[in-house]
Simulated assay, not measured.
Amino acid sequence: MEIQISGQYGDPLSSKIFSPLRIELNQCFKKNISREYFNTLIKLAIVLRVSGEISDFKSQGAERLRYWKKDKVLSIDLVFFESQWLGVDLSVVRKIMAEGIKECLNLMIERAVKLNEVVDKEALMEGIENALADFLE
């Protein structure tokens, strides 16, 4: 099972700020999420949609939670307004990103529980907490 973060960026500056954070976050999850926590799900996928000068995604927060039964994946979008990152200190962006990721994962786990997929919720939550703690260090 893996947690994978990908991104869609509204302009080159948003990509320059969020892409390295996304890569670092993926590494934190890879290090801390190492077991099977679900019956059949193989991936929790979060897409960062970061509004910028070229593309404005016109919303904020977690949205569009989807279950891809054939692929055994839960996915969700995490949308950021331009005002959440433009001219904001990187440590604040990092914290906002971690909080959003945690919200998304909580929603995904709730959905997985409804789908009767969760095998070891406690261990999964511990791995997520450890990954986010590593990311925030």
Rank of each mutant, 00 (worst) to 15 (best):
M1C: 09
M1G: 13
Q4W: 01
S6L: 07
Q8T: 10
L13D: 10
K16V: 10
K16C: 01
F18G: 07
S19F: 09
E24G: 11
L25G: 07
C28S: 07
K30T: 08
K30H: 11
R35W: 00
E36N: 15
Y37M: 06
F38E: 09
N39H: 14
T40C: 04
T40D: 10
L41C: 09
L41K: 04
I42Q: 13
I42K: 13
K43Y: 02
L44N: 05
A45M: 10
A45C: 05
I46L: 13
I46Q: 02
I46K: 01
V47Y: 00
R49G: 04
R49Q: 15
V50Y: 01
S51C: 08
S51E: 03
G52F: 06
E53I: 12
I54G: 02
S55Y: 07
S55K: 11
F57R: 00
F57N: 03
K58E: 14
K58R: 15
E63L: 10
E63W: 03
E63F: 00
R66F: 06
W68N: 15
K72C: 08
K72Q: 11
L74C: 01
L74H: 03
S75Y: 02
S75G: 15
L78V: 12
F80L: 06
E82L: 07
Q84E: 15
Q84T: 06
L86P: 01
D89P: 02
D89R: 13
L90I: 15
S91Y: 11
V92H: 08
V92P: 02
A98D: 08
A98R: 04
G100N: 08
G100Y: 03
I101A: 01
C104T: 08
L105C: 06
I109A: 01
I109H: 03
E110M: 06
E110Q: 12
R111L: 05
R111G: 01
R111F: 01
R111N: 09
A112D: 09
K114T: 11
N116W: 00
E117Q: 15
V118G: 09
V119Q: 10
D120R: 13
D120A: 10
K121Y: 05
E122Q: 13
L124T: 00
M125Q: 15
I128Q: 01
N130E: 12
A131I: 05
L132G: 04
A133W: 07
L136Y: 07
L136P: 11
L136V: 07
